[in-house]
């Protein structure tokens, strides 16, 4: 029993990180129908910003978190302005290739500046509660709570505010939205800022939970989060959250029963099976192609 609760907690922790990153993928896809393959590397930048903040500026948890979020959000907006915006009319594949290129650039730029894996000092005091066999740390609780808060905030923004309404309008019909007076470019920038900011927050939490970070850490986590977004139905915000938690649970389950080397295999096999039977994801809606 304790074991199950323990594993559920682990699954929630991993799942909330995946869900936060998946939100960035799904928001950008919803608005631009473009897969931002550099998102996993923005997550990595978030972790490195936290490292810089904690090691060189000795910031505490909240300022470091803010720096991670704002820094990656700014980077996301800049990338969108310089790399993706000129390609809005270009074939979609060019945009995807550009995103891959930006991702490789971020990885290797970080690697060039910082050739060694780094260790993030603990920013949250190492408090652990134990009930019988069950033990959970303050960090775990903070990660889960904070992610849930961020997700609720995002859900509120998208459903209840003007900016969110404009986002939904653009993803509904990109050509009519500007006719209704929606500043498309500004909304797209806002989307990128929010999406990558969440990714940066996830990067920081991941870095605190698994403290050794390196410039390539974003690749695998990024792809996993992308799978979560697809599983939930890409373009659908609540779907991305659900997908993140599902993937987290599946990975923890696999690691509990099989050698951990099978973890990636199962994650990707899950994706393939799902795509065959439900190609539009759990919450996504199938749409017929019109001629």
């Amino acid at each position: 029993m304790f074991y199950i609760i323990q594993q559920t907690l682990n699954a929630l922790q991993l799942g909330s990180i995946y869900a936060l990153i998946a939100l960035g993928y799904t928001m950008v896809y919803g608005i631009l129908t473009m897969i931002n393959f550099a998102h996993g590397d923005l997550f990595m930048v978030g972790a490195f910003l936290c490292f810089v903040a904690a090691t060189f500026f000795h910031m505490s948890f909240i300022p470091a978190l803010l720096l991670s979020i704002l820094g990656t959000a700014l980077l996301g907006v800049v990338i969108e302005k310089f790399a993706y915006k000129p390609l809005r009319q270009a074939p979609r594949v060019s945009a995807i290739i550009t995103a891959l290129g930006v991702g490789i650039f971020l990885e290797n730029f970080t690697l060039a500046l910082n050739p060694y894996p780094r260790f993030i000092p603990p920013l949250v005091c190492n408090l652990t509660w134990t009930f019988g066999e069950l033990s959970f740390s303050l960090l775990q609780v903070m990660i889960i709570t904070l992610s849930v808060i961020l997700m609720l905030l995002l859900d509120f923004t998208v459903r209840r505010t003007m900016v969110g309404m404009a986002m939904r309008a653009i993803s509904w019909d990109k050509s009519v939205a500007p006719l209704m007076g929606i500043p498309v470019n500004r909304i797209i920038s806002a989307t990128f800022a929010i999406g990558t900011g969440l990714g940066g927050a996830a990067g920081m939490m991941y870095g605190l939970a698994y403290p050794v970070i390196d410039p390539y850490m974003g690749i695998m986590v990024g792809w996993k989060a992308f799978i979560s977004a697809v599983v939930g139905g890409i373009g659908n915000i609540r779907g991305a959250m659900i997908g993140g938690f599902i993937l987290g649970a599946v990975e923890i389950l696999v690691a509990a029963f099989f050698p951990s080397t099978y973890r990636d295999f199962v994650a990707f096999a899950l994706l393939l099976v799902l795509l065959i039977f439900r190609p539009h994801g759990i919450l996504g809606k199938p749409h017929a192609q019109k001629v």
Binding site: L87, A90, S94, G101, F105, N108, L111, A112, P115
Partner: peptide
């Protein structure tokens, strides 16, 4: 390592 920084930049410029 800087060549792996320059290559993707060139790719992005090419795509644009």
């Amino acid at each position: 390592i800087w060549r792996m920084v320059i290559m993707p930049l060139m790719l992005v410029l090419l795509m644009i």
